[in-house]
Amino acid sequence: MLSDRELERYDRQLRIFGEGGQEKLKNARVAVIGVGGLGSPVAYYLTAAGVGKILLVDEQTPELSNLNRQILHWEEDLSKNPKPLSAKWKLEKLNPDIKIETFVGHLDEGNIGDALQDVDVIVDCLDNFETRFLLDDFAHKRSIPLVHGAVEGLFGQVTTIIPGKTLRLREIFPRAPGKKENFPILGATAGVIGSIQAAEVVKLITGFGEPLANKLLIVDLEHNSFDVVELE
């Protein structure tokens, strides 16, 4: 049951997917892997949408050059709070009715099982394919949907992996690009792609709409195009 306060807080989205959808969000646990350019808008919108439990995973501490895009980190967090903790206090102020959990550390084969136990959806907000493939393997092992997003410059891509139904991330990007330490990126690009990822999560949990399953959305803000490629 939703409280009167929740009915008011989520009034504008209850008009989309109803109280049943909102209760599904409230009962969901979503892992946001990487709390940077993509993870910031993803965590912010999922918090605002009332996802009951959000697990933030990152090992880094915010740096000044992060602040053009990583909107959950502020000047006062620099070189102080690891990104999950930097994000947590703001998200709790935004929505005290939900629970923000944190994992400060690097995911690897040894710890991913414990770190991501009992999550309903995984959101890939990482900056490298090595760890993405670790998520891909884990998602398939546990049959958990994985929302992939990536950005560079004014370009980005989103697709939703549903184990057993869609191609794996490894199959979509067999020759994955290497990690770039200081890749160019406009904050607004991460905002667009992260927002689409957040919408994917809400669609997956509520059952409303059509996720980008076996579809790769390619966004080019430089030349103003949104294209969807069928993956199967």
């Binding site: 990487g34 993509l38 994955a176």
Partner: peptide, 10 residues
């Protein structure tokens, strides 16, 4: 035929 470069940043 469409060619597109995957990106990897986050």
């Amino acid at each position: 035929v469409a060619l597109f470069p995957p990106v990897s940043g986050g």
